[in-house]
Structures are given as C-alpha cells and as structure tokens.
Computed example of a mutant assay.
Amino acid sequence: MQPEWSDFQVFLAIARAGQLARAAAATGVDATTMGRRLRRLEARLGQTLFEQTRQGQVLTEAGEAMLAEVEAMEVAAGRIAEGAATAGGPSGVLRVSLSEGFGTWFVARHVHEFVAAHPRITLDLVASSGFLSPSKREADLAVVLSRPRAGPVIAGKLSDYALRLYASPDYLLRHGTPTCAADLGVGHRLVGYIPDLLYAPELRYLAELEPGLHADIRSSSIIAQHRLIASGAGIGVLPCFIGEAEPGVVPVLRDQRIMRSFWLVTHKDTHQLARVRAFKQWLDEAVHRHRTALLPPG
C-alpha cells in the first residue's frame, strides 16, 4: 500500500521539531497517534527514517534523503492550493517569527491592517526570546537581528532602529540622573539581559555604552526588563519603539543612542508564495509609515 500524504506531513513535523513530543504539540496531533503513523510510514517504505536518541529523533541517511523530497512536495502542494484560491486572495497558514519586543510593541500594534486586508490567511505570530528558522522551515518569515550567513534563504534589511537608556521618573528622583555613561557604574542599578542566555550577540548593549558596565538585575525577556525599568528597579536599555511609547519611562543620556538593524528572512523555495509576498509588502509599508517609532529624531 502506498503511503498517504498525511503520513509524510507527520514525518516532516517530526524532522523539523527534532522530538516527537514537540512535533505533536506543534501540530495538535496526539503523540501516540503521531508515533503510530510514523511507524506505518517506515513499514510501507521499508526504511528507518529516524534514530531514537536521548535528545529526540535524529534523521537517518534515508530520512535525510526523504526530507528533501517531502519538502519539495510540500512546496508544490502549497503552490497548487494557492493557485486554486487565487480569486479569493492569498490563503493558508502564515507563520512569522519575530523578536519579543518588535513583535509585541510594533507588529502587534499594526497587524490588524494586514488581517483585515487578507481574511483568508491564518496568521501565527511567534514573538519570543529567540527565533524560528526559515531555513529549517520552522517559519515562513523571520525578522532577525543580523543577516544570515548561510542556508537556503533570502534576506534583506527591513529597517535600522535605535535604542536608548530609560528609567522611571521615580528612580531618577531617588537616585539622581546620570550626566554621562561613566556615572552609570556609580550608585545606579542596571537592568539587562542574562549574558549566557543571549540568543543574539546584538543584544550586548551596556559595554557598548561604557566598558565594564554590567547588569545587576537581569532577564531573558525584554518585556520583563521594561516592567523592571518602569517599576523603578533600575536603568536599562530599551528599543525606542518601546521606550518612547510607554509613559512610565523617560530617556536617560538622550545623546547616547545604540543602533541596530532588523533583517527580513524567507526560504528560497517559498518566498514567492502569495501569502508570504503579501506579508512582506505589508511589513515594508508599515515600517516606512511608522519609521519615526523605530528611529525617533534627536
């Protein structure tokens, strides 16, 4: 009996997740059912597709070869589905990976425009500390902090953006306002990232302002850092699209700006899908319209 397409989709989910349990959680399929369908696929093909390790499922040589074929099948199926739905506009599930701050404070504020224009698209916004990988087909698009150096992807700069030091008015009233970066190391508590949990080197800010500075209160979450700064716990670096939009914090050392960039990344095989092109166009336009939020004057 020939394998069913749905069994190949199970194989694809496990290959991308690296663990059967994670694949089950991502797809909403019971892990026991998923394991049974994988064994059925292997039996019908007469091949072992994964090795079981302590870390999870690792592709065998046969599995690696089949992964390329099944990914090509997935792309073809997506193009066929999009062609059939052209009259009604782009459709299907679109998964976008974003940094926690950009996804929460920028994209989430404006994405209703995209949703209203494309009602047939189901949009997954994965805004977290870390990124899903378009090269591994974990996401259709990703907005990342540096241009990928390898992989079957297409990358372009989305926008530069600025960051500044911020504090709450109450904190400055209690501890005084620093007049230069060197003052930050004397009598002030600093909020920042946990060094060994950084998911991108571009998040190392404090040493760029003044050598030797380190955070006293640390979190892997920019949302938590913002809350700490707004509560008066200390001074910390925030993207201006967060700091300037929130009334609970004010700039410190306004002339000290840190510059970073966002890069938009898609997979070479899927960047021409209608739903991917639609989101890229909308995001480019949104960034252009709200450029002063990312790069405030002064």
Rank of each mutant, 00 (worst) to 15 (best):
E71Q: 14
E71Y: 03
A76V: 13
I80K: 13
I80C: 09
A81E: 15
A85D: 13
A85R: 12
A87G: 10
G88R: 13
G89S: 10
G89A: 04
S91M: 15
S91N: 14
G92T: 04
R95Y: 02
S97M: 09
S97C: 11
S99N: 13
T104K: 11
T104G: 05
V107K: 03
V107C: 08
V107R: 02
R109M: 05
R109N: 11
H110L: 14
H110S: 06
V111Q: 12
V111H: 11
H112Q: 12
E113M: 08
F114Q: 02
A116W: 02
A117R: 11
A117L: 11
P119R: 08
P119T: 07
R120S: 03
I121Y: 09
T122S: 13
L123P: 01
L123V: 07
L125M: 13
A127F: 01
S128E: 15
S129R: 10
S129F: 05
F131N: 03
L132T: 00
L132S: 10
P134Y: 12
R137S: 12
R137E: 12
E138F: 05
D140N: 14
L141D: 10
S146L: 00
S146F: 02
R147F: 05
R147L: 14
P148R: 10
R149L: 15
P152E: 13
P152H: 04
V153A: 12
V153K: 10
I154H: 13
I154Q: 12
G156H: 03
G156L: 01
K157F: 03
K157T: 06
L158N: 06
L158K: 02
S159P: 01
S159T: 05
S159H: 00
D160E: 11
Y161T: 00
L163N: 11
L163C: 15
L163I: 04
R164Y: 03
L165W: 07
Y166K: 04
S168N: 05
D170I: 11
D170V: 14
D170T: 15
Y171G: 09
L172W: 07
L172N: 06
L172D: 04
L173W: 06
R174G: 04
H175N: 15
H175I: 04
T177A: 15
C180D: 15
C180N: 15
A181V: 12
A181Q: 01
D183M: 07
L184C: 00
L184A: 03
G185Y: 01
G185S: 00
V186D: 14
V186A: 11
V186C: 06
H188I: 07
R189T: 15
R189Q: 09
L190R: 01
G192T: 07
Y193M: 11
Y193G: 08
I194H: 08
P195F: 07
L197C: 10
L198Q: 10
L198E: 11
Y199A: 10
P201M: 05
L203V: 01
L203I: 05
L203T: 03
R204A: 15
R204T: 10
R204D: 14
Y205C: 07
L206E: 00
E210H: 12
P211N: 04
L213Y: 04
